[in-house]
Design a protein around this nucleic acid. Structure first.
Length: 272
DNA sequence: ATCCGATGTCAAT
DNA sequence: TTGACCTCGGATC
């Protein structure tokens, strides 16, 4: 689940449900026991998303940093909540609001001090969901890397909140070969790509899913995407076989024709 | 019952 | 570049 759209949805949901309330905080699993004990009963002021990072700000001045990583999940229950599982790292609950959020498997769940928060935010590039006008910062950071574009888009210092699914879908829709050096993109390509990322992420916040292809609300997630996790299947535009190649340590999915040297991306609808 | 992979990141080679 | 970490659902035996 977790690219930038997920964290922004959580920030909004948890702010709506819990901000201004005293929150019961616990760590059934135990690995956050000390932090939970410190926060338990405190008033939550609000929750912010910065790329894939979540910051929970408490009236006491404490800041809780959560990063879901690859497998982390936050389940937010309204009404009667089930018992948290034994591996639940963190529970945030308001009995009066009948809300309980259960966090499992996070990469990070920790209290951070102001210096750590500053360092965290300083290493993030612009977040399309937080700063949709930040195309210039995006362009500068693309120009400063030697990496291929497909790899640069996974670098949270280049753009914050984009992950493996959004990078693949965005580059397909832009018709750009992911192996091209990021610094070689024309200004118009950078601008169009930034707008594309903003649009895809905003759609993700609205729906909670990464569905980029117009058809197929029915069926698996793969049926609602152009390339991500579709290696070996025909391209929805040209029927060429979608490829997966390692880029930035992960599988990069792309159409060899639509994203070939001749380029060609636009808003053409998919084939039948 | 067991294995494997996943929308992520970091530390150790 | 690789392995470790973390949890869970789906595939496989």
């Amino acid at each position: 689940m977790p690219e930038g759209h997920t964290t922004h949805r959580l920030a909004r949901a948890h702010t709506d449900a819990l901000a201004g309330r005293r929150v019961a905080v616990s760590s059934p699993q135990g690995r956050f026991a000390a932090g939970a004990a410190r926060l338990d009963g405190q008033v939550l002021d609000g929750v912010e998303a910065h790329g894939k990072h979540l910051l929970y700000r408490w009236r006491s001045g404490d800041v809780l940093h959560v990063h879901l990583g690859l497998v982390g999940t936050f389940r937010t229950h309204h009404g009667a909540a089930p018992e948290p599982s034994a591996q639940t790292r963190l529970v945030l609950a308001s009995p009066e609001a009948e809300v309980a959020a259960h966090l499992s498997g996070p990469l990070a769940c920790e209290l951070i001090d102001p210096a750590e928060e500053e360092a965290l935010l300083a290493r993030l590039g612009p977040d399309p969901l937080a700063e949709p006008g930040a195309v210039t910062a995006f362009a500068e950071r693309l120009a400063a890397t030697r990496a291929p574009l497909g790899q640069a888009l996974l670098d949270q210092g280049v753009v914050a909140g984009v992950g493996n699914a959004f990078r693949a879908e965005a580059l397909f829709l832009e018709g750009i070969d992911p192996k091209r050096p990021a610094r070689d993109l024309a200004r118009a390509e950078v601008s169009s790509l930034w707008d594309r990322l903003c649009g895809l992420l905003a759609d993700g916040v609205a729906t909670g899913r990464i569905h980029t292809a117009p058809d197929a609300d029915s069926g698996a997630d793969e049926s609602a995407r152009y390339v991500y996790r579709r290696a070996g299947s025909p391209c929805r535009r040209c029927s060429a076989i979608i490829e997966a190649l390692p880029l930035g340590g992960r599988a990069m999915f792309a159409c060899p024709v639509c994203q070939g040297a001749s380029g060609g991306g636009d808003d053409r609808p998919p084939l039948g």
